[in-house]
């Protein structure tokens, strides 16, 4: 078999994944695209390993490791996405614009939202003990 077939397929899959990473809005879809890119790399590894007839089979071993690491990555990634969703109410990554400077022109969506969502939780965290102390004070009085 020509090596060009798996190599070109890997390239095309990789670029498809690239497009997905850059174009998708939902964070989970971005993770899917990352998986596509990893698989393209795996395909390359296997094809070259077979072609070179490596006695250690480094390509296949690395492919196995990559698959494992990809599994771990998807687990951590999903955990992060879920955490973000819980805190920000969205998993759209173009709304997460904390990196922009505040007051800038670009981040009206992203800067407004965290302030709204963070404010009450912080206020809750600080107010609650004060309230309880106050009620306790009234009770003793």
């Amino acid at each position: 078999m020509h090596l060009a077939y798996p190599a070109v397929l890997a390239v095309l899959l990789f670029c498809t994944g690239l497009y997905g990473v850059l174009a998708r809005r939902n964070a989970i879809l971005v993770l899917m695209s990352v998986e596509l890119m990893l698989n393209a790399v795996n395909l390359n590894l296997v094809a070259f390993d077979v072609w070179l007839r490596d006695t250690l089979h480094a390509g296949q071993a690395l492919t196995l490791f990559t698959i494992t690491i990809a599994a771990a990555e998807i687990g951590i990634g999903l955990a992060i996405v879920l955490l973000v969703y819980r805190n920000r109410g969205t998993s759209h990554i173009d709304r997460l614009r904390e990196l922009a400077e505040t007051g800038g022109t670009g981040g009206t969506d992203g800067t407004g939202r965290p302030a709204e969502t963070d404010g009450p939780t912080v206020a809750d965290a600080t107010d609650n003990p004060a309230d309880t102390r106050l009620t306790r004070g009234e009770a003793t009085a």
């Binding site: 390239v11 497009y19 850059l22 174009a23 809005r25 173009d94």
Partner: peptide, 23 residues
């Protein structure tokens, strides 16, 4: 309707160019 971000043209250009170069 909002599955794709506004970054799509850039993404397309980058991906197609990368594909062309790598292929």
């Amino acid at each position: 309707p909002d599955a794709d971000s506004g970054n799509r043209p850039v993404a397309l250009a980058v991906a197609v160019t990368a594909a062309a170069v790598l292929v």
